[in-house]
Each structure stands twice: as C-alpha cells, then as structure tokens.
Amino acid sequence: MVGWAIAVHGGAGVDPNLPPQRQEEAKQLLTHCLNIGIFALRSNGSAVDVVELVVRELETNPLFNSGRGSALTAKGTVEMEASIMDGTKRRCGAVSGVTTVKNPVSLARLVMEKSPHSYLGFSGAEEFARDQGVDIEDNEYFITPDNVGMLKLAKEANTILFDYRIPTAENEKSPLPMNGLPLSAYSPETVGCVVVDSEGRCAAATSTGGLMNKMSGRIGDSPIIGAGTYACEVCGVSCTGEGEAIIRGTLAREVAAVMEYKGFGLQEAVDFVIKHRLDKGFAGLIAVSSKGEVAYGFNCNGMFRGVATEDGLKEVGIWK
C-alpha cells in the first residue's frame, strides 16, 4: 500500500496583472476540486475515476478553458478536446473537435472503454457521443461573454491569443505576451488532474478549448497521449501551456521516460523535462508517482495548481 496523492491544474502562464479577485476565484475553484478528489480517494476511488471526476468539475465551471468557458475559434465557435489515461494497463482515450459534448473528458473515457479505438475527432466523436448518450448542449452553452470579448481583441490584433505573458528583458515589470498582443484581460487555460491511489495506480486527464482565435481544426497537446497526457506504471502527468512546444517535446512521456531509463525521482524528472525539452516554448505540468509522490514545474510566470497527499500536504498556488 502507498499513500494517495493528487494534483490539479488550471493552466500555465498567468498575467502578472491578474486582478486579486480573479486570483481568489481561481484558488477557490482549485481548492474545491482538490477537496472533491480527496474525498473520493478517502472513499477508495480508483485513480482513473478520480481524475475524470475532478476534470468534469473543472469543465462545468467556466473559469478555466475547458468545457463551458472554452476558448473560441476564429469562427466564434468552440472545438474542445480531452484525453484520459489509466496507467495500470496504459489504456487511453482522447477526443478532438467536439462542439456539443458537456464533458469531453467523459467522452474520452468512453472512447477508451467502449470503442475499439484510442482517439476520435470531430464529426466521428460527435456521433459516438450521441450513440453513448452523453450530456449534450448547444454550442452557445460553452460561450461566455468574457471569451467573446477576448476573441474580438485577438481578431483586432490579427493574432492567436496565448494565455501567458513573460517579462521583457528591458523591464521585468512590464509583461509582454509571446505573440505581441498587449492585453490586460485574463485569458484562461487548459485544465488537468493526476492521481495515484492507495493501490499505487496512476492516472491522468487533461481537457481544453485550445487557443483563442485558433484556426478551425487545430489540435493541441491536450488530447495527444505522450504530449499533454500520459500515465503508466511509474507516474501520471498532465501538461499545460504552449501546445505546439509540448507536442514537439513529447513532454508528458518524457517525464516517465527519464524516470524509467535514467532512474530519476519524480521532481527531478519534472525539473529536467521543463528545462531541457521545451526549446523556447513555455509550459508547465503536474505529476504523481506510483510511490505516492506529487510534483509540478513550469517555466513561465505562474501556473494555477493545487496538490494534496495522504500524509497531510495541501497546497494551492499560482505564482512561483
């Protein structure tokens, strides 16, 4: 028997000027989701059940970029994506381009458990969702006034809106977004959860609406097994940030790989991957190990995250 551990994230890369009220709202939601996961783990919930449960809660709340509150495409619609992985047998399921599914993470689990495939997208994923009887909503359900405003600003600047900012070299107090779009509004990000249960079983799940003003059909790292999500016998990992960089670095799988082949500990593996596998990209990740450890890392201003372990650790934070 090992002690359980859980981590949850609401996106890496945070505007340094994020209003205190927004910061508090984010912390309250992360604490709420942690408590849901803790209760389920204390009730002997399995790792894969708990990651689905927690990510469903995040998808239902419009604060972060998944489910309701997802970022909008250039067409003003949502194209959501999610994945889930059960590390005990390395089973996985993923979906992309879903527009009406209330909880994409649950559809991803159904792909894993009720289909012969690992990944379904767009119209095929929507057809499968209806065959499985999942909760469906009109596209308008997912669209929030905040994101409509964000899309307008992104279109005016003729750019894709990344959710993170980094300080310029000239003035560390003057943040500049990676794509040159000076916005003071808060843009939300991907959500994810990783869990190791008391049996040492690891699981991970990630869900997102993607980038604001993205091209229709764009697929990020979140539904890609080994990039945004990975779980195996030794760990579970969920990533967030610049999806294209995460895909190139196969970030989630790299954490497991250096643990398996280099013998790194969990936090050592996370630090190594963040430092050496992102090139010039910006991202963060959360991870658990089969030994009951929890870790996180990021190379940008901040990451919305919360962690808890059976031995009493409980932490919710945003900044470094």
Rank of each mutant, 00 (worst) to 15 (best):
A7H: 02
A12H: 05
L29I: 11
I36F: 03
N44E: 12
V48S: 13
P62S: 07
F64L: 09
L72A: 04
A74Y: 08
T77S: 12
E81P: 08
E81A: 14
S83M: 07
K89G: 12
G93L: 02
A94F: 12
K102G: 05
S106W: 05
E113C: 05
G124R: 09
E126R: 00
R130A: 08
D131G: 10
G133N: 06
E140G: 01
F142K: 11
T144V: 09
N147A: 04
V148T: 14
K152T: 13
L153C: 10
K155F: 00
E156K: 14
N158A: 13
I160M: 13
Y164M: 12
P177E: 10
G180P: 07
G210N: 02
L211V: 06
M212Y: 04
S216N: 10
S216F: 10
I225K: 06
A227M: 10
T229Y: 03
C239K: 09
T240L: 01
I246C: 03
T250V: 13
A252I: 02
A252Q: 03
E254Y: 11
D279S: 14
E293P: 03
G297Y: 05
V307G: 03
E310G: 03
D311V: 07
G317K: 08
I318N: 06
I318C: 05
W319D: 00
